[in-house]
Structures are given as C-alpha cells and as structure tokens.
Design a binder for these strands. Structure first.
Lengths: 336, 336
DNA sequence: GGGTGTAATTTGAACGATCAAAGTGACATC
DNA sequence: GATGTCACTTTGATCGTTCAAATTACACCC
C-alpha cells in the first residue's frame, strides 16, 4: 500500500502497473473467474501496491447501482421508544457494511413527504433500496414503493394489508407470553395488563400474548387498563387496576414508559416493586436498565440483519425466502 | 412534470426539449447569470416538464463533490446519553438537507477503525466531510483529518488540543450555572453536586458552573461526590452526601442518569423530590420527561445547524467565522 | 494445413454531468 | 469596411468505471 498518495489510484493506473488492460483489472474485481490465476495475482499485487479503491460514483454511473440504502429518521419525542430505533440504526448500518452497502438518512414531515423523498433520492442520489419503520394500517408508502418497483423491506409487519412484500418484525405476543408465563411461575394469581388505547396493531399484538397465556392457564381474572400513552398513562392505569375488584399483584406492560408509571404508582402506595409486586415493561430501553425494570428486549440486531438479507435478495432479482421474518424477543429480568 | 416516465430525464433530453445545448441547461442550474432571461425560462419549463433531476453520481464524477457528510454511529449502551446523539442525528440530517447535502452513516469499533473508515469512505464513496462526536483528550482522529486535509467539524470542543479547527459545543458550565442559580433563588442553602469521576472534560466543565456560581454567591458549603457513572452511582453519591456534615437540600447532577439515582435515594429515605429536596439532571433525556425530572437541555438542533454551517464554509474554501460555537443550554423545570 | 472452439484479454463506446475553449451575432469603434 | 468587444451559446474532452464486441493465442481435429 501507499504509493499513489496525492491523487487516488484509478483502474488505469493499476492496469499499467500490472501490465494488463483496465478491463482485466475490472474483471479481477468483479468476475475473478474470467481471469487466469497468474494475472489475477499480479493484478491483486498492483491493487495492493497502489492502494487502489474503486470509485463508487463512476461505477454507479455505469451500473446504476449505488449500494446505498435509504432510511428515514424520525424526530425524537416518541417517549422512550426512540431508543429502539437508535439501536436499529446502528445495527442496520453495521449489517449493511458487511455487504458493502451504506445507510443514508433523510427526514420527512409525514408519509406524503416520505414518498416525495423516495422519488427525489432515487432520481438524484440513486438510492438502491429503502428500509421502512413505523409501518401502520393502510400504509401508502408501501403501495407507492411497490408501484414504482423500488426495492424495500420494512421493520414492522403489514398491519391489515394484503400486498405481499418482504418484512421483518418482532413477535410482540411471544414477548408478553414470556413475561406472563414467568409471572405465573413466580406464583402470581392476578396478572394485569397495562396497554395503549385500542387501534394500534403493535398494541393489540402485545396484549394478545398476555391474554392467550392467561387463557390457556385457565386464569379467569384478566384485569387490564389502557388510558393513554406515557408514564402518566401508566400511573393512571395502574391506579385503576389496583382500585378494581381484582387488584393485580403483577403487571405486564406494553412499553417501558407505561411500566415506569406503574412502578411509580406502586411506590406511591408503599408497595415495593420486585418484593410485593412485579412489573415487566417492553423494549428494554436504557431507562429500564437504569431503574432496574424487568423488560422484554427486541432482537434488534437480528431484525437489521434480516432487513439487509431481504434487500440483498430483492436487489439480486430474487425473492427472499422466507419473504418475512417474525423474530422472538427475550425476557430481561431485573429487580421488578 | 411527468413525461419521461420509465427512464430518468437527462440533461440532453432537457436540452433537446428546450432547443438549446446541454451546457446551457447545466448553466441554468449552476450559473443562471450566464444565461439570458428568455432561454432561462424556456429551460426551466423544460426541466419542469420532463421532471428532470440532476444525477449526483455523474456530477460527482466530474466535480469530485458528493454532497455527502459522513457520521459515525455508536453502539447503544451509553446509558441515557445515546438519546442526545439520536436527536443530533435527526437535526444534522435536517440541516444537511436544507443545503442539498445528505448524511451517510458508518460504524467503527474504535478511533483507529474510524480513521480507516475515513480513508475508505473518501476513496470509494467520495464523502465530502465528516462530523465527529465524542471528542476526547488527545483525539487522534482530529489530527488524522487535519493531516489529510479533509473537511470536518466536531460536536464537542477540543479538550486540551492546540490545533485550531471548526467545532461546536454546548456550554456545560453555563448549564449548571443556570441550575444552581435557580436553586439559590428557590432558597436552597446547601446545594450538592453529583458528577463523574475526574478526568472527563465534559464532567469538569459541568462541575465548574456549579462551583463558580456558589463561589460568587459566597456560599461556603460545596458538598460534592463522584463515585461512578449510572443511576447506581448517583444513588451511592447521594447517600454519601446526605450522610455527610452538610447534607444538601438540592442536587445538581452531571447527567440524568445520575439524577435518577439521586431521586431514588431520596425516595428511599422518605424525602419527596420537588417538595423537600430538589434535583436537576443534565441532557433532558426522555427519561427525565417520563419521571418528571428537571433537567438541562442542550440546544441540539442549533448544534447541528452550526456544524453544517461550518462544513459548508470549509467546503467553499473559506474559514468559518467564528471558527467555533459554544452554545448555551437551557433549564427545563419539572416536578423535581 | 486449415478450420473450429475455447479461454484470456483488449478495444471502443457509453453512463450523465461539468470544464475549458471556441464559436456566433450584435453592436460599437476607428 | 475591417476590427474589437461583449453577451450568450455551443462543441469537444473528460471524470472512472463497466458493457458489448472484437481480438489474440493456442489446442484440437479431420
């Protein structure tokens, strides 16, 4: 390495050095099997010698492949859930790098703006594919991308859509099932659920795991409350359940944020979470770690890796198999 | 818009449509003053008509400017502080977009790997500039970038470095000064500081504001403790102060994480934060909002905007004026 | 000896933009 | 009427790579 210092080495420079044509050098890089072993080694030596690195823009101009994956970043303020995306961002970048791709960010005020950004980024930057988060019911973005034949994968399953496309998601029901089963084993008889107001697919999913577990355990009391999002919502919901006919001794929550509220309410009433009551949150945010809150952790790194796997398949003109992945979360036990 | 559908419109297509040469179209976009008003309008109409968008890769190949800003993403697990970066990421992307730039992410295991990534990204992708976070004492990355003449700006001041380069930072001392002054106004006589173990520039900075404020207020008792990072560290530190000779009635903390620990310890002792004791954290993380913790908020959006302003100046061959920006944080008051 | 096939390599053109230099008129100047 | 100047516009070359087609070398066969 280290010879052509000031200006980058080009394919031609390597070719001269190795006494072959540019195309042969190109072949060594892209189709090694087309080149004889002897010249291959000679060219590789020259590449090493000059510190040659292919120029992506030039390659893109010819192949119309940028090796860039677009990802929308969201404004902070989703309560604690932003941390999950933060983690996802890092994992996605790492996974992409393993396959010589890069993640490029963009912002958008709403779905409409996001679709405009798709058009813009594919036209100007030549972004190869997109990863979508925050999928929701009747998501126009998916329709748009499908219509425009743009490769994409989503972190979030198709809530109520019939279109078939590559997606990756975490099995929320399996998560709350894990939590509920754990609480049952610990001897709890009345296990409450604190969730979000109905309407969100994610919320229904997480509730379902708790419900079905109690169901198959033959537990009749299934107190639940869903007031509004956030810690204050969790507090109010917990208060309602504790004042109800069958006050729970354990709580499964749809988010860490809600769980923090439940813990606060318990403390307020002189109960010690972990000792005389149990609380389990969802998402395993740093706040959970800081407060000693047990929580359900999503396998974010795996989600990111799956997204990249799906995209690579689509970009290679194949259909990813399986087309979708529903990954199991795991339970992280702490004091509560 | 909407005419050349399948394949993107090129400069040549627009030229044909407007009955001019490619170069004239290029001039309309890049140097409008070189073109007569009449043809300018005609060309703009053609651009609109064909929905033309310039192809960045082609432009980059000729100008060696990619309009891409590189940013290293860090693995989560910095406690709560990751959220600040999350916010920064979003703001930086938004600021970059306003000037037709894009943010590209990369990962690195350590500073060494980060420098290798600089080399790689500039050679292959042609990244124009980098934004650095987590600057620290004797930061090799800065030396590397300066030596290689690569444009960059840092979020974080040059701790102990004598090299002069564009940086943006938040005035931590001003933050703790705000907090301490507020607590003095509320009538507190003994205000403690809970910080990190010595050695971190950020930590010293935040401590300095608290100390100097008490100093100029003529307050003699200045109890402080710094055990280790995280909520547990905050608890232990608070316990030590409360058991000391001059137990504080108010606490200024170097992070929200530490503040959470202080609040926990106070509750443990039957004290109600907000009523008989005050606690102020730092960074205004979502956890602070959720727990009702007062905190010092960094003006992240402004930091990002300044970084972009600096980079643009450097990329235009100018020296940013001022070369560095030290922005004031603000105090967010909640229950505690 | 000449045709045929195959593997390895080279050559010319192209991707879509910008740079540098040259070309075109209109009008003023001597 | 030749020359110069100015504002505007066009032409040719180029950035670094890959595609498609052409070329070379050599072994094989009748």
């Amino acid at each position: 390495m280290a010879a052509g210092e000031r200006s980058r080495a080009t394919l031609n420079a390597v070719a001269r050095q190795a006494n072959v044509s540019r195309q042969t050098v190109s072949n060594v890089i892209n189709f090694p099997e087309r080149v004889s072993e002897e010249t291959r080694l000679r060219v590789l030596a020259a590449i090493e010698d000059l510190g040659y690195r292919p120029h992506r823009a030039a390659r893109q101009l010819r192949t119309s492949r940028s090796q860039v994956i677009g990802l929308r970043v969201w404004p902070p303020g989703d309560g604690l859930s932003g941390v999950v995306l933060d983690h996802f961002l890092h994992s996605l970048t790492a996974s992409a790098e393993q396959h010589d791709h890069h993640v490029m960010l963009f912002t958008a005020a709403d779905d409409e703006a996001e679709m405009a950004a798709y058009a813009d980024l594919t036209a100007t930057v030549g972004v190869d594919a997109f990863v979508l988060t925050h999928t929701h019911h009747d998501d126009q973005r998916i329709r748009w991308l499908a219509e425009h034949r743009l490769p994409f994968a989503t972190f979030g399953r198709p809530w109520g859509s019939q279109v078939s496309y590559p997606w990756v998601d975490v099995d929320g029901a399996a998560g709350t099932r894990l939590a509920t089963e754990h609480l049952l084993r610990r001897g709890h008889q009345v296990i409450g659920f604190v969730g979000w107001p109905p309407g969100s697919g994610v919320g229904e999913d997480r509730r379902a795991g708790w419900l079905s577990t109690l169901d198959s355990a033959g537990i009749g009391h299934r107190p639940e409350a869903a007031v509004f999002d956030g810690a204050e919502g969790g507090r109010v919901a917990a208060a309602r359940l504790l004042d109800g006919d069958h006050p729970p001794t354990a709580f499964v929550c749809a988010s860490d944020s809600l769980a923090v509220g439940v813990v606060t309410e318990l403390r307020e009433r002189g109960r010690h979470p972990g000792a005389d009551a149990s609380v389990i949150g969802f998402d395993d945010t740093p706040a959970a770690g800081v407060l000693g809150l047990s929580s359900i952790a999503q396998p974010i790194a795996e989600v990111a890796a799956e997204c990249v796997r799906h995209l690579r398949a689509v970009l290679d003109g194949e259909t990813p198999t399986p087309l979708s992945s529903l990954l199991p979360p795991r339970l992280v036990l702490r004091q509560t």
